[in-house]
Design a protein around this nucleic acid. Sequence first.
DNA 1: AAAAAAATACCTGGAACCAGGTAGAAATAA
DNA 2: TTATTTCTACCTGGTTCCAGGTATTTTTTT
Lengths: 211, 211
Amino acid sequence: MSDNSASLAIVDDHLIVLEGLQQLLLNAANISVAGSFTTGTAFLSFLKKHTVDIVLLDISLPDINGIELCLEIKKLSPHTIVLALSNHSERSMVLQMLQQGASGYLLKNISGEELIACIHEALDGQITFSQAVKEIMSRPSVTELKGVPRLTKREKEILQLIAEGQTTPDIAATLHLSPLTVETHRKSLLQKFEVKNVALLIRTAVEQKLL
Amino acid sequence: MSDNSASLAIVDDHLIVLEGLQQLLLNAANISVAGSFTTGTAFLSFLKKHTVDIVLLDISLPDINGIELCLEIKKLSPHTIVLALSNHSERSMVLQMLQQGASGYLLKNISGEELIACIHEALDGQITFSQAVKEIMSRPSVTELKGVPRLTKREKEILQLIAEGQTTPDIAATLHLSPLTVETHRKSLLQKFEVKNVALLIRTAVEQKLL
DNA sequence: AAAAAAATACCTGGAACCAGGTAGAAATAA
DNA sequence: TTATTTCTACCTGGTTCCAGGTATTTTTTT
């Protein structure tokens, strides 16, 4: 940063949110809003020409999803700190963003003071969450308790085809496999999900957003 | 309204959105923000003491859901115009809100001019939508094209049990029916959904939010 | 009161599912 | 390079699914 105030960018496709954030950041010391953008590509092209210390990044954007965008930002400008800003409070989302190099995750119901505090924490090199996210991350998740099974490539493939209504012989034909092989994978799926038939298989798979 | 400027209230649990909306409405003639609230109950108690011409109402609130809140508002103050403000663009949501007496439905990606225009239209007694909502409502929905089957009580019941992983004999036992009867209902379900097995049955039922 | 829809129950027979194994080859990780 | 995982394939045997009917009783609608 050129002076002692950090340059901050905002990316969100909702004008209302853009305005709201700028308003909340008006009376924040050491933070100056360098720009606000409604699309991921717009911000990326800005980032190619300017230095951005920290960016508040909405995850659901029209042109590019937040996870990929985060990756692009880090590729382009590794020193830029990314703070995810989202309505969605799923653990998996939080974890994915962190994996892509985000320094924190804020929900949009955040307060002004909290927002500013989180930005300062992030600028200090810390990982930071808004209060609601902290709570979600601290208590063990339903999916963790249940244990979301990690599926192999073939299993995902076959799960997909089952969900499309294909029978075991059908799947064998489309994948050029023996029906017996498909049966084996099918059984693995039932075991991993700890269910006893396809009805429950499809249902839990949908619930765990695997379909 | 006491003078020529309409009194407007905002209900949204996100501070950012509250700030953003107020900012966008600053340079709007004839509109004065009478108050902003983060919970439905807070607004309702305000409404008991003050006159509100129009309210921008977020559908997803922590304490009360938007549809019920809309009903309450109309019960308490029928002349107050309700404009729904939401992230969700499902047709069913829009229709439900209109049914509860809302005068319009806006998505949060709305622009400042559009917002003000919509408010003025609503104050003139019209039903108003933001551009994105207009588009969604104008094109025939997927569910309309596919035709969501209307299920009988028994069928819904049995669909539910199938989704819980029960087999035909199981269901027969829990409902004190002959397995053959259950089979008949099961077949009706497959026919009505135009699918050939449970995998697709569950999947489409979930997609159509029947489960 | 008549007609339509829903719920009940039955029959047959083939296809697919599901549980319980075993086992070798290929790819990946330690 | 060894160990582990994944993918492949097979066998048996009982259970359930699914398609194609028919048919009576009860409920709802007209």
